[in-house]
């Protein structure tokens, strides 16, 4: 069994899911691909999220690590998983700040375990930054253009 490299449930500060939080051993992408029973995995910035696509059915938790907030690869990884139909928990971990929350949410993250706990009020405001959005993304929000042209 590979070493558990993941965050624990009590490190999760924000969660937008109703289901029971999983507390399984979290493994690397490589280990996940080799190991048929892993249900939780952590993606590092250089990992190819698409390697996980064959295993999405058995995954209940995917952590995407942001060692530095300004490395944006994790945003693409998140959308790729959601576009492939992944419905399990998608947790942003690491250097996650207030100002990244709204975009992360749009890319499909539904759980957040920042290294440093965030001010609750600032975070609540950040999640609500955009009453409307221009782009289609992983959150299925209707875009401004959709609203402009609805019948």
């Amino acid at each position: 069994m590979a070493e558990d490299i993941g965050t624990s449930p009590d490190e999760v500060q924000f969660r937008f899911r109703e289901d029971e939080i999983v507390d399984h051993g979290t493994v690397t992408v490589d280990a996940c691909c080799d190991q048929t029973n892993a249900t939780a995995v952590r993606i590092e910035p250089g990992d190819d999220a698409r390697l996980l696509l064959p295993f999405l059915d058995r995954l209940a938790l995917v952590e995407i690590n942001f060692p530095a907030f300004n490395d944006g690869r994790g945003y693409s990884a998140a959308r790729i998983l959601r576009e492939a139909g992944y419905t399990g928990e998608l947790r942003a971990v690491g250097d996650v700040g207030v100002d990244q929350l709204s975009h992360m949410r749009r890319c499909g993250f539904d759980s957040f375990a920042p290294d440093k706990r965030l001010d609750e009020e600032d975070a609540a405001r950040a999640f609500a930054t955009w009453a409307n959005v221009y782009q289609r993304a992983a959150d299925a929000r209707r875009t401004i253009a959709d609203k402009r042209h609805e019948a």
Binding site: Y75, R79, H103, C107, Q135, A137
Partner: peptide
């Protein structure tokens, strides 16, 4: 312009 404004995936290129 609209597509690229506040694009959630491409803010930390």
């Amino acid at each position: 312009r609209q597509w690229s404004s506040f694009h959630p995936e491409f803010t930390y290129l």
